[in-house]
Simulated scan of single mutants.
Amino acid sequence: MISYGLLFFASLMIFFISQIIHFYLGTYNLSTMYISFCAGFILFIPLVSLVLHPLIVNKEGKSETFHFSALLANIGLVCVVQFLCFLIWMTDAIALYSLYVDQHSFLAKVFDIKTQSRGDMTFEFYCFNFILAWLFAMLSMVVGVLPCLIARLDNYGVVGDFVAAFSFAKRHKSLMCFYALLIASSVLVPLLYGKYLFLVIFPSVLAWVFTRLNKKYLESSVS
């Protein structure tokens, strides 16, 4: 129950931050960029998923005591890499928005982005962000969630955990693509169109995907 409570709290924090960002983007007539921030939030899923680690079931079918110190190396590396990815993505998103959506926006002037007018490509911008959100969800699982999960179950070392995560993702490509689609949809669709539904849909989907990954990894290691 504590894990689910912490997951809801983390979801509430993401929702709160997203609404603040949405408000200020609207103030500067940049509401279209909101989807880019929503997609960027997906990169922090590995950090959020840590609260679910007490739910991990080992090969004996039992839940072990969660020792946070055992995962510090993995967590630190994942957080640094994904935070940098978030910053890089947001700078790229600003450039894309200024190039293809609003060539005369406040951001275009601040960053001195000049281009010939291509017309309003808002629809294409949204589609691009949805695809990026799916890729971010895949990246978050392979580079973030899985290595930390494997570290709890087998602990091959930092490099070994990442190798095992990539190997697992390669063997179960279709399943990983489906999970990534679920996660991306659980973030973007509620935040863009359902607002408060995010507080129900996102934690439910993330908890379900996490437990399924745990079960699938155990099945794969046994076979």
Score class of each variant (00 low, 15 high):
4 Y>K: 14
8 F>A: 13
10 A>G: 09
11 S>D: 10
14 I>N: 14
17 I>H: 12
19 Q>V: 03
22 H>Q: 05
23 F>D: 04
27 T>L: 13
28 Y>W: 15
28 Y>F: 15
29 N>G: 06
35 I>C: 06
38 C>K: 04
39 A>R: 02
40 G>P: 04
40 G>C: 07
40 G>Y: 04
44 F>P: 03
45 I>N: 08
45 I>C: 09
48 V>H: 10
52 L>W: 05
53 H>D: 08
57 V>I: 13
57 V>R: 14
62 K>M: 03
62 K>N: 03
63 S>I: 08
65 T>A: 08
68 F>W: 11
71 L>H: 00
78 V>L: 03
80 V>W: 03
82 Q>V: 07
82 Q>T: 11
83 F>K: 06
84 L>D: 02
85 C>T: 09
90 M>L: 06
92 D>M: 15
94 I>D: 09
99 L>P: 12
103 Q>M: 12
105 S>V: 00
110 V>A: 09
117 S>K: 14
120 D>Q: 01
122 T>F: 00
128 F>M: 10
136 F>G: 00
140 S>L: 06
144 G>C: 02
146 L>S: 07
150 I>Q: 02
151 A>W: 00
154 D>L: 10
155 N>V: 06
159 V>K: 08
160 G>C: 13
163 V>H: 03
163 V>F: 09
164 A>T: 01
165 A>K: 14
170 K>D: 14
174 S>G: 06
175 L>H: 12
178 F>V: 09
182 L>T: 05
182 L>F: 13
188 L>R: 05
191 L>R: 08
196 Y>H: 13
201 I>P: 09
201 I>V: 15
204 S>L: 14
206 L>G: 12
207 A>R: 10
207 A>F: 04
207 A>Y: 04
207 A>E: 02
210 F>Q: 09
210 F>H: 12
210 F>R: 12
222 V>G: 07
222 V>Y: 07
223 S>C: 01
223 S>M: 00
